[in-house]
């Protein structure tokens, strides 16, 4: 069962909520631009979730300072920061390509509405 422990994980919860809001937007909105926005919200949620996994209370960002603490455990997890960066770049690429497809579709059909596009095609 879902336990109250869930509320000790509010950061994770926020990431998951954003993921679901984005997914819901993508599924329900007919407007293509809104679908792309939903996609971005969804991905942002995942990135928030990922950086939250990497964080630990009382730790520093993983950039070594001269004369700073040198013990590994005093920093946040750098691997997740690196994977999130990769994820962001992939999300940006997908968005750019999706927008250029939308621009071209709008030029050809004059609409951004999925249902109307469906009608135009048949």
């Amino acid at each position: 069962m879902i336990s109250l422990d869930l509320f000790l994980r509010l950061n994770y919860l926020a990431g998951i909520m954003l993921f679901l809001i984005g997914l819901h937007t993508m599924l329900t909105h007919a407007n293509l631009i809104k679908k792309v926005m939903g996609m971005n919200i969804m991905e942002t949620g995942i990135f928030l979730f990922m950086v939250s996994i990497g964080y630990a209370h009382g730790t520093l960002s993983p950039i070594m300072r001269r004369g700073g603490p040198v013990q590994g455990l005093t920093y946040t997890n750098p691997l997740l920061a690196a994977t999130v960066l990769t994820g962001i770049v992939i999300a940006v690429s997908t968005t750019a390509y999706a927008l250029s497809l939308i621009v071209k579709l709008y030029e050809q059909c004059g609409t951004l509405d999925v249902d109307r596009l469906e009608k135009l095609r048949s």
């Binding site: 336990s3 000790l8 994980r9 509010l10 950061n11 630990a56 209370h57």
Partner: peptide, 11 residues
Amino acid sequence: ALSEAPAFGRV
């Protein structure tokens, strides 16, 4: 899944 996952911010 999350209600049993490791808590947020654990060192």
